[in-house]
């Protein structure tokens, strides 16, 4: 359970300034607002059924663009901050398994991203006038998608922190690997927003769970190589 200490340290440092969380929330708000402008008057409720259908098609993808882009902000800082102050050396000196550093980072990143997401969803509902029937289902999809994003993202964030172009490289190498997560999460969110039941998205949920399990295990195995000197 030593990784909880690392997660706690991260969250404590974060909540002293709330720098990262504020920028993530603000960024995802802005993405949603900009998209609501970009969709124009079609996003409000006083429109024809056909226009509404267009919004229904685009909205889930837009929501996940907001989540992943804002999450990327947090991820790229996750190890870069440690590296700048030389804290990574300190972390490596901790008498814990290397994978505990990874697990701690995963927890703190997940908490931050999930907080960002549950503040973004209400704004999304307001701006695009959705009525979500199945809130637990949506939260489940969001959580599974976020976990997949964070499991791979934390590993690759530790990987890119050692490279020359850090923050630029991370999104470039992360998104191709994340395609299964984004694709399944977007489809599942779309079904749930259209008031579909959780049984209709069993296939997507299965892929999300498989992705999460596989990459969690792989990350435990290979993480130590990313921060080794």
């Amino acid at each position: 359970m030593k990784f909880l200490h690392i997660a706690w340290k991260d969250l404590k440092a974060e909540f002293r300034t709330k720098q990262m969380l504020n920028s993530m929330v603000m960024f995802s708000f802005l993405v949603i607002v900009i998209f609501s402008f970009a969709f124009g008057k079609e996003s409000s409720i006083y429109i024809s059924v056909i226009d509404r259908k267009i919004v229904d098609l685009l909205a889930p993808g837009m929501l996940w663009i907001a989540f992943t882009f804002a999450g990327m902000l947090g991820l790229s800082r996750s190890f870069a901050g440690e590296k700048e102050e030389g804290c990574l050396e300190g972390l490596k000196l901790c008498p814990v398994d290397r994978s505990d550093i990874y697990n701690g980072k995963v927890i703190s990143n997940t908490v931050l991203m999930f907080l960002m997401e549950i503040t973004t969803i209400p704004l999304f509902i307001v701006l695009f006038s959705y009525e979500i029937k199945n809130i637990p289902g949506l939260l489940l999809v969001v959580l599974l998608g976020t976990l997949g994003f964070i499991f791979v993202g934390t590993l690759l964030s530790a990987l890119t922190v050692n490279t020359r172009t850090r923050e630029i490289l991370l999104p470039v190498i992360l998104f191709p690997v994340l395609i299964p997560v984004i694709l399944s999460a977007v489809t599942a969110t779309g079904v749930l927003l259209a008031a579909g039941s959780i049984f209709e998205i069993a296939g997507e949920l299965r892929i999300l769970v498989i992705f999460d399990v596989i990459f969690f295990i792989v990350a435990q195995l290979v993480f130590e190589y990313t921060i080794e000197d």
Binding site: L159, L183, S184, I207, I214
Partner: peptide, 23 residues
């Protein structure tokens, strides 16, 4: 070392991408 890690992670993503695109 770093590219070996990405070589492993990237390859494991391929079957999953295939499954999700298929679905």
């Amino acid at each position: 070392r770093l590219s070996a890690v990405f070589g492993i992670v990237g390859f494991l993503g391929v079957p999953l991408s295939f499954m999700s695109i298929r679905l």
